[in-house]
Design a protein around this nucleic acid. Structure first.
Length: 937
RNA sequence: GGACGGGUAGCUCAGUUGGUUAGAGCAACUGGUUUACACCCAGUAGGUCGUGGGUUCGAGUCCCUCUCCGUCCACCA
């Protein structure tokens, strides 16, 4: 079945609707079925080029660069949140008439991807990458990318993401790679990149150095070993030093023992020596202020090859560096034959055992310390001395200034503190990785020269360029590749053609750069956000020592940074495969529809902090879509469809003289919610967005306006048509306001209700602001209060019925006791009250006695339920007594406040007036309640 | 150790510069097929706004103390 036979479509196209009661058609789904609608419209959008980014000097530019997901990754809830938010921003921008670019793409994700392929290779062919060699292995990775790459982008399409897919970019594409290498060369030439032997974080699982940012500290339960190192020359006082360590397996690499130079216990020993137990060697005792006298025994074993601090001590004292742990985390021959080839954790046990056997282990106490783990490899990192490439961050001062002065704004603002704090203590970035999958560092070394002989300032020794040397046979290229983040940090500029834009790209750069908004999680502020800013500041434009604010504003990659929280499960745990608490978004789309999921995720995503996810909380999205669907169906069932082709056409159908209070009220609310939502976007506060839409549409429009209009629809044709025009106006605006969040269903209804008859897509009609939505209609603001009073009376009447278990009875009579204007307000709305409260009749109390009738007090006077014969007087008395007590308290509070001269004098007149009015109303209500209570006897 | 965020109804959270009687959704309970919607409608109940103090005519909101939770940064072997 073609879903487009649905009632909405049929009605939209049937000019002779009135003769066609479509609701008897069997095909019509009572509930919204998103599947086909979503697939249909997504295809339409693509075919019509709705997402194409076009430079249009007449329109304001709006650009978002997608945070590129891992090319071989799968869509998870974090992506759903991140991309839904981006889609909301860009779709809203389109509705505002801006010219939008949403750039999609993927990241080659060096370690993650290479590790996956290595694992596959191991499992399927029992081979390592070394068996294949660099080239053959890389072919495998490219194959893998061909198979699994881009799946995640297809998944984003299922979500409805409106990226310009023709521009899909990949960080290893050749133009992008050229940008990466160019950046490297320029940084190198400007002195920001250098090579050096440093202590780095080594990941023994993935065999590469990683940056400080990729190390996560985790508390670990281990042991604190206390052992003795015998003095070479025992004196009368002592024969040995006691030393505490958590890592006895490194003792074979010890080259000294350090004490604090002022430590009275030990300072006389400085210059003497102790025995390293195995392999047996004399170690000097040195004095170094790094040693904390209070900690442990006050004596520190120094292993310069395997500890960052020890390395520094070693540098200061010219100590020998003995590497006993290799790149895989295994001990080597220098540790002694018995340890050769042993895993480091195995060696820890064995070393402790050996010390014990030698009588040198004094104590072994359980101990919790924090250990750095490799983010990717998920094993403890090994501090390791190696040759690496480093980037000294450029334009740090400008990067701070950009955010401090608001040239770049964080939303919410508080994240700027995190950003600035990181920039303040920033260390050089290790950008080389001992991997094959990535951008190979564009540095060549002259063959025949030892690495140690290289003079980096001599172009005969070292060649650095994008293209490589002219005589490649005489050179050997650096084997390392760049950290993935040292390529994605160019994302905004490289995707627009930097560094060598052609004429078209230059236009795009001029138009869309700097981009408008970056949407991402706080977890990559350091990894990505800050680095993009610094890269842009340094590389976008001429080489400059320092930048003015104007130059900063031209070079930054984005003007706004929208930071959202991380999705966690309902218990607040991180989502992970191993916990099995990470739902597949595609299943959720199946269950709730893409729009339902989008609405739901947006609804539970407060700005900033973590988001606790549960399916239950997503249901609201599906429910809302269903409500929207049904309200639209109901609109069609309520009367003929007329000219909905434009806002003006609908305005022309409204006769202002026929507007009643309810019409004025809903129009005022419509303008209000339009403004509120405008504010959500202008202030980057999306938390209230769905709440506003939901509350207005469901609470105000469906529950009150549509219900109230049910009576009117039975009235005169003019009255009916006027009411339908108002409904059309509201629905039209709601569809546009909600469109960024739930694009598919709103597009379907837009078409179905005939709003798209002149322009095919909802995004082509500019969203009306609060004043344009009302047009020439003058809204009577005082209607708002009258409607509120009426609603209160209706609610009270319903409640009265419910209290006497009469909710379902529709023949109940209610009396109203108001006089004067209030009585008029009630009698003017008899029909409405009857309909909405479900009454048989509502009539003036007149000569009837109100005694012993259940009653309620409303802003429009008291009302009484006609129930005299079967009233439970005692229960009613109890209820009213409780009510009265509450009112007494409120009156007393109000009186006290107004008697206080300080309040009357110092509070604003408006507030005082409000308090007076409130007191008057409460007092009246109290008196009325009291009177009713007394009448019960 | 430093910084940041948070503690409001059973749960998840709103609550704008201090100003009427602190709200919503979900869950619970009661009743309901009334011209769309049970993915629905009507109603009920549920809160000393973490603790203690202060400023103020007035504090969920501002200031201070303490406490608990979360996150990030830096970490003593």
């Amino acid at each position: 079945m073609d879903y487009r036979l649905s009632g909405l479509k049929a009605a939209a196209e049937g000019a002779v609707w009135a003769a066609f009661p479509f609701f008897v058609m069997s095909e019509i789904a009572k509930a919204y079925e998103p599947k086909e609608v979503e697939a249909y419209w997504y295809k339409q959008w693509l075919e019509a080029g709705c997402f194409k980014a076009v430079v249009d000097s007449e329109s304001e530019p709006y650009a978002i660069m997608i945070p590129p997901p891992n090319v071989t990754g799968m869509l998870h809830m974090g992506h759903v949140l991140d991309n839904t938010l981006q889609d909301i921003f860009v779709r809203r921008a389109r509705l505002e008439g801006k010219s939008v670019l949403w750039q999609p793409g993927t990241d080659h994700a060096g370690i993650a991807t290479q590790t996956k392929v290595e694992k596959q290779l191991r499992e399927s062919e029992e081979k390592t990458k070394y068996d294949l060699g660099r080239e053959a292995f890389l072919e495998k990775v490219w194959d893998f990318r061909e198979q699994s790459g881009g799946v995640i982008l297809n998944q984003l399409e299922k979500l409805g993401a409106s990226c310009d897919w023709d521009r899909t970019s990949f960080t290893l594409d050749s133009p992008y790679s050229k940008a990466v290498l160019t950046a490297f060369v320029r940084f190198y030439q400007r002195g920001y990149i250098y090579r050096g032997q440093r202590m780095v974080n080594w990941c023994p699982a993935t065999h590469t150095a990683i940056s400080d940012e990729e190390v996560n500290m985790k508390p670990q339960n281990g042991f604190f070993y206390k052992m003795r190192y015998e003095l070479v020359e025992a004196d009368s006082e002592r024969t040995h030093l006691e030393i505490s360590t958590t890592r006895p397996e490194t003792l074979m690499g010890d080259t000294a023992v350090a004490v604090h130079p002022e430590d009275e216990r030990f300072k006389h020993l400085i210059g003497k020596a102790v025995w390293r137990p195995f392999p047996k060697a004399e170690l000097p005792i040195i004095g170094d202020e790094y040693v904390d006298r209070e900690f442990g025994t006050g004596c520190l074993k120094v292993t310069p090859a395997h500890d960052k601090n020890d390395f520094e001590i070693g540098q200061r004292h010219g100590l020998e560096t003995i590497e006993v742990i290799d790149e895989s985390g295994k001990l080597n021959g220098l540790a002694g034959e018995e340890f050769d080839g042993m895993d480091r954790f195995e060696a820890r046990k064995k070393a402790a055992q050996k010390l014990e056997d030698m009588g040198l282990l004094i104590e072994r106490e359980p101990y919790e310390n924090t250990v750095g783990f490799s983010e990717r490899g998920d094993v403890p990192i090994e501090p390791r001395l190696s040759e690496q490439w480093f980037l000294k961050y450029p334009k740090v001062e400008e990067a701070k200034r950009a955010v401090e002065t608001g040239i770049i704004k964080f939303h919410p603002d508080r994240w700027k503190k995190t950003y600035l704090h990181w920039l303040n203590g920033i260390q050089d970035w290790c950008i080389s990785r001992q991997l094959w999958w990535g951008h190979r560092i564009p540095v060549w070394y002259k063959k025949g020269l030892e690495r140690s002989e290289l003079d980096f300032s001599n172009p005969e020794h070292v060649h650095v360029s994008v293209e490589g040397p002219l005589d490649p046979e005489n050179w050997e290229q650096e084997a390392d590749v760049l950290d993935t983040w040292a390529s994605s940090y160019l994302w905004p500029m490289a995707n627009l053609g930097w560094p060598d834009p052609d004429a078209d790209q230059q236009k795009e750069l001029d138009y869309w750069y700097p981009t408008s908004t970056l949407v991402t999680g706080f977890d990559i502020i350091f990894f990505w956000v800050a680095r993009m800013i610094m890269a842009g500041l340094e590389l976008f434009g001429e080489d400059k020592e320092s930048l003015t604010d104007e130059e900063i504003a031209e070079r930054i990659p984005f003007k706004n940074i929208f930071i959202h929280g991380l999705i966690r499960d309902e218990k607040g745990r991180k989502m992970s495969k191993s916990l099995g608490n990470s739902p597949d978004p595609l299943d959720l789309i199946e269950k709730f529809g893409a729009d339902g999921l989008r609405f739901g995720i947006c609804n539970i995503a407060p700005t900033g902090s973590d988001i606790l996810f549960s399916e239950e909380r997503i249901q609201i999205g599906r429910n809302f879509c269903n409500k929207l669907w049904n309200a639209s169906r109901f609109r069609q069932m309520s009367g003929p469809m007329s000219d909905n082709s434009s806002l003006e056409a609908i305005h022309a159908r409204i006769d202002p003289s026929l507007l009643d209070d309810y019409d004025h009220w809903i129009l005022a609310r419509l303008a209000g919610v339009t403004e509120d939502i405008e504010k959500c976007f202008s202030s980057y506060e999306l938390a209230p967005l769905t709440h506003q839409i939901y509350g207005f549409f469901w609470g105000d429009f469906c529950d009150w306006y549509v219900e109230a209009s049910k009576g009117k629809l039975k009235g005169s044709e003019a009255e009916r048509d006027n009411c339908l025009a108002i409904q059309d106006l509201v629905l039209r605006q709601v569809l546009q306001l909600a469109n960024p969040v739930i694009p598919h269903i709103t597009e379907e209804l837009w078409k179905g209700l005939g709003y798209g008859s002149s322009e095919p897509f909802i995004q082509n009609m500019k969203l009306a602001d609060a004043s344009r939505i009302l047009g020439v209609l003058a809204v009577d603001a005082s209607a708002v209060e009258r409607v509120a009073n009426l609603q209160e009376l209706i609610t009270q009447a319903r409640a009265l019925k419910a209290k006497y278990n009469l909710a379902s009875k529709r023949d109940v009579t209610v009396f109203f006791g108001a006089e004067g204007g209030a009585a008029q307000a009630v009698s003017d709305n008899i029909g409405l009250i009857q309909t909405l409260a479900g009454l048989g009749s509502i009539q003036a109390l007149g000569e009837n006695s109100a005694d012993r009738l259940p009653a309620a007090v409303t802003p429009l006077g008291p009302i009484y339920l006609d129930l005299s014969s079967s009233l439970d007087v005692e229960a009613e008395k109890a209820r009213l007594t409780k009510e009265l007590a509450k009112l007494e308290k409120q009156v007393a509070a109000g009186e006290g406040k107004l008697k206080n001269p300080k309040f009357v004098d110092s509070a604003p007149a408006q507030v005082v007036e409000g308090a007076r009015k409130q007191l008057a109303e409460t007092t009246e209500k109290r008196d009325e309640t009291k009177r009713i209570l007394e009448s019960l006897g």
